[in-house]
Nucleic acid binder design. Structure first.
Lengths: 142, 142
DNA sequence: TCGTAATGGTTCTATTTGTAACTAACAAGC
DNA sequence: GCTTGTTAGTTACAAATAGAACCATTACGA
C-alpha cells in the first residue's frame, strides 16, 4: 500500500514547482517590455546566442515543437525582431536572422536574465550550483 | 554587450527543460490509465497523501490556481474518484474526500510514480540527489 | 443589524497550446 | 520523366489555461 509515497521528494513535482517559480518573475521582463511569450523569448535568445539558423534547427536545439516555433517566428517577424532569408538551394527553408531591433531586445533581455539568474542563485554555494546544473542537464538529456 | 550570456547555464531554462522531460513520461501513466490531466493527478495525490481537505487548501499547498482546482475537482468527482462533504459551519466550503475508487487510482499511480522516480534517479548518487532536491525546494520556496 | 469587505468556489472569455492535417519543395527509385 | 517518400513549415481545430467577473456565504465594523 503506497501510503508511504512522498510527494515532497518526487522529482517531477519538485522540478515543476521550481521551474514554474523560476520562470515566473523573469517572464515579466519579456512580457511587459516586449509583449513576448516564452517561446518567442526562447527563439530570440537562440538566434542571439547561436547565430542565424532555420526554424527546425531552433526546434531541435531548444526541444520545441515546430508549430510553436512557427507561431513564435511569425510574431517576432511581425514585430520586426527578425527577418527570413531565403536558403539558396532549398526553398522550403528560411534562415532566420535578428534585425538590429531584435538584437537590441535580445541584449536587453539577456541582461535582465543574467540579473535574474544572479539574484536567484545568490543563496547557493558554487558547489551546489554545479551539482544542480549538472543534474538538470542530465535529466533533460542535454 | 551580453554576447556572453550563457543560455546553457541559465537556471530557469535548465529547470524548464528538466521539468518537462521528467513530467512527460510519467504523464502517460495518469493520462492513459485514467484519462487524467496533470492538475487532476495533483489533486488526487494531495488528497491521498495529506488527507481530506478543501479545494483552497489544496491550492495553497500545491500552488495551483483555484480555477484549475475547481475544474480538476469537478472532473474527479464526475469519475467518482472523490466526493464533496459539507463543512458544518461554512456552506461555502466543501471537504474533498477520496472514494475507494479514487484511493485505488491513487495507490496505483503512486506506485507508478515511485517506479518512475526510481528509474529517473538511478544514475545519480545519494549526495547529488540530496543537493538536487534541496536546491529545488529552496528555489520553489517550499 | 445593517452595510461593506473578504472568502470559497464557479463560470465566462480570450489566449495559448497540442495534435493532426495540409502544402510546398526536395530526394530517390524506377 | 514519373511515382513515392521525406522534410520544412503553416494552418485548422480541439483542448487547456489564465484572468476577470461573478455568486453565495461568512466576517467585520459602525
Amino acid at each position: 500500500m503506497p501510503a508511504d509515497f512522498r510527494l515532497e521528494t518526487f522529482l517531477p513535482y519538485l522540478l515543476n514547482r521550481a521551474a514554474e517559480k523560476a520562470s515566473l518573475d523573469f517572464a515579466r521582463a519579456y512580457r511587459d517590455r516586449y509583449g513576448m511569450l516564452r517561446t518567442e523569448w526562447r527563439v530570440l535568445v537562440h538566434l542571439g546566442r547561436f547565430g542565424d539558423m532555420t526554424a527546425s534547427q531552433i526546434g531541435a536545439r531548444a526541444g520545441i515543437h515546430k508549430t510553436k516555433i512557427s507561431r513564435a517566428v511569425a510574431a517576432l517577424e511581425q514585430r520586426r525582431f527578425l527577418r527570413r532569408l531565403n536558403v539558396e538551394d532549398d526553398r522550403r527553408r528560411a534562415m532566420l536572422s535578428l534585425t538590429p531591433a531584435g538584437r537590441d531586445a535580445h541584449d536587453d533581455l539577456t541582461r535582465a536574465a543574467a540579473a535574474h539568474d544572479a539574484a536567484m542563485t545568490e543563496g547557493f554555494t558554487a558547489a551546489e550550483l554545479d551539482t544542480l546544473r549538472d543534474c538538470l542537464r542530465r535529466i533533460a538529456g542535454l
